[in-house]
Amino acid sequence: MTSPSSNARRVFLQKLLAGSAAAGLFMVYRHPVVAALTGDDGDKAPDHDFAFVVDINRCIGCGQCVRACNVENNVPEGQFRTWIERYVVTPSGVHIDSPQGGMNGFDEVDESLAEEALNTFFVPKLCNHCAEAPCIQVCPVGATYRSPEGFVLVDSEHCIGCSYCVQACPYGVRFINHEKRIADKCTWCYHRVSKGKLPACVTVCPTQARLFGDLNDPNSAVAKVRQADNWDVLKPEAHTESMCLYLGLQRVVV
């Protein structure tokens, strides 16, 4: 004999068990920061909100990220999903360069320039995955979109290659892939994150100048950075709601 209430209790317990088992599996197989897009196939919208942090104070300009990105994403030669710039600020002006996107690191600047330098640093650049992305707005066919988790992505089967998005992006992160002849750009390694890994550039960054994580997870490094509120975004006047938060960003950087 089972009372309705005990029955309900049993169902509840079963659910609880199943739930915690699933959650447990999740914890085991997923990188904690990006316990992410796969797993939970419930019908509610995924409640992730990813963001990227670039810490300029830490970047050493080794180019590991650029190389890793090119390998991971088969980026054609001469095009870049991410790159590193070197800024040398002097009293007479600012000297910026990015030899081959910083892919092979940097050689020292001229001695005279080095002596003049008031301030010099490296700035990694990548797609900002803007919440108000101009590239999405202008795509005439809906081939670029923002996924529910905050990735701005390109549908390579639907893109017509008109390059309007390339024009609209204020950050110059988009390009027309020479080989595929469609729009291309950083995906924050969507394919990796969906498997519980970190983006390739974050994986290889030796100094943790690049961080990636879920803003909805209050313990994630990115959430803490955002909380601390000492970050900046590139070109704030473009009002794109950039999701790449820069630490140590100087005004001279564009």
Binding site: E72, S147, L153, H158, Y190, R192
Partner: peptide, 14 residues
């Protein structure tokens, strides 16, 4: 296209 993007092979393992 989301599913298609997930199929991209990984090169770096971490």
């Amino acid at each position: 296209s989301l599913e298609e993007l997930k199929l991209q092979p990984m090169h770096l393992g971490g």
